[in-house]
Amino acid sequence: MNRRDFIKTTAAGVGATAALDVMPSAPAAAAAIDDAAKPAPGTVTASIPQHPDMKYRRLGRTGEAVSLVGMGGFHLAKPGGMTNAEAIRVVHAGLDAGINFCDNCWDYNGGESEVRLGRALSQEGYRNKAFLMTKIDGRTAQAAMGQIETSLTRLKTDHLDLLQFHEIIRMDDPERVFAAGGALEAVLRAREQGKLRYIGFTGHKSPKIHAHMFAVADQHDFHFDTVQMPLNIMDAHYDSFEQTVVPIALAHDTGIIGMKAFGDNFILKSRVMPPIQMLQYPMGLPVSLQVTGIDSMPILHQALQAVRTFTPPSPEFRNALLARSAEVGRTGSTEHYKISGHFDGTGQNPQWLTEA
């Protein structure tokens, strides 16, 4: 959908209140999930995509319908992974299967992840099937605007559906974003220019930093449309985003985007449960969607199977899953992104915070 068509569609949809096709009917255990997926009064609800094997949820008060699983962008150009042609085929296959959420970032693989996604979306009308998100690292207005323009060029689009501040992993990151001359100024200007529609933030380090970002936003009377965070079978046991940040996001009706179900494979290697159950665990939370890295057709099919076979868990089943992961999870040893700097891209490359 181009920017002009989006504006027309949004105007026509104001006041719509139809509930999204979230998931099969569920017992009371799923009530919180269902409530989080329904439109808030007076919000815009975009037309609901139709695909027999995909489930969709509401992206917070934006009213947008997003697929329960999203395609992560890093793996599209991960070193030693897919070729350009293979990445394009995976993106097309995912969109054809009903996935509509595409994740990416200005810094992923030196920009090659955005380039490959842009090539895929520019072919055969695939951009119209995608809810396109990318992230920027810039903390100054100049850096943020430069990175937005670069991302738009790489992605071969005139607008982003969602732009998120990447790696809010330091306690002073919120102040830098909201400062005079900070990144938010450029992002708001880009939104006014029609270059992006919604604004969110991401981070993987500490729920306290996420909570602080919400608090600083409240001080500036600003509402984030989305928030992205690690949500997985281990998180509940150690410095938990699920326990700390999810309630804050729900109170703000901010769309919750989960990530790191496999913990960059460290959680996967724990073998506390099969991969599909690991991916389904965060789907049982009141998230809008769970982003997962997809580096091959078999992994895409695994993600699709996780959605097809997902039903909201009973409290008893959820507790049983958590019991399986408790011994390993309580140390944080499988969540390296929380306890080490190995996954802190802007920590290893601080120039990204100011590079235009």
Results as ranks from 00 to 15, higher is better:
residue 55 K to T: 12
residue 252 H to M: 04
residue 244 T to N: 11
residue 333 S to A: 15
residue 353 L to M: 11
residue 156 K to N: 13
residue 249 A to K: 01
residue 139 R to E: 02
residue 64 E to P: 00
residue 205 K to G: 03
residue 293 G to W: 00
residue 124 E to V: 03
residue 66 V to C: 03
residue 223 H to F: 13
residue 1 M to Y: 01
residue 194 G to R: 06
residue 219 Q to G: 15
residue 303 A to S: 15
residue 141 A to M: 07
residue 218 D to G: 12
residue 140 T to K: 01
residue 185 E to M: 07
residue 1 M to I: 06
residue 198 Y to A: 11
residue 110 G to E: 07
residue 186 A to F: 07
residue 164 Q to G: 08
residue 106 W to H: 15
residue 259 M to V: 09
residue 123 Q to S: 09
residue 199 I to D: 07
residue 273 M to G: 02
residue 177 V to Y: 01
residue 111 G to E: 10
residue 214 F to R: 00
residue 192 E to N: 08
residue 182 G to R: 02
residue 188 L to G: 03
residue 307 V to Y: 01
residue 147 Q to S: 12
residue 340 S to H: 02
residue 156 K to V: 05
residue 81 G to W: 02
residue 157 T to Y: 08
residue 12 A to P: 00
residue 193 Q to S: 09
residue 200 G to E: 08
residue 199 I to A: 11
residue 98 G to R: 01
residue 71 M to L: 15
residue 322 L to H: 06
residue 64 E to R: 03
residue 293 G to F: 01
residue 315 P to V: 06
residue 162 L to K: 05
residue 222 F to M: 13
residue 151 S to R: 05
residue 321 L to G: 10
residue 125 G to F: 15
residue 194 G to S: 05
residue 338 K to Q: 13
residue 340 S to V: 08
residue 261 A to E: 04
residue 215 A to K: 13
residue 5 D to H: 12
residue 21 D to Y: 05
residue 35 D to C: 05
residue 325 S to C: 09
residue 85 A to W: 04
residue 256 I to V: 14
residue 93 A to P: 03
residue 257 I to C: 13
residue 341 G to Q: 10
residue 22 V to K: 00
residue 219 Q to R: 13
residue 248 I to S: 07
residue 310 F to L: 09
residue 163 L to K: 06
residue 17 T to Y: 07
residue 127 R to G: 09
residue 274 P to F: 03
residue 286 P to W: 08
residue 221 D to R: 13
residue 20 L to N: 10
residue 9 T to Y: 04
residue 24 P to D: 12
residue 288 S to A: 15
residue 346 T to P: 01
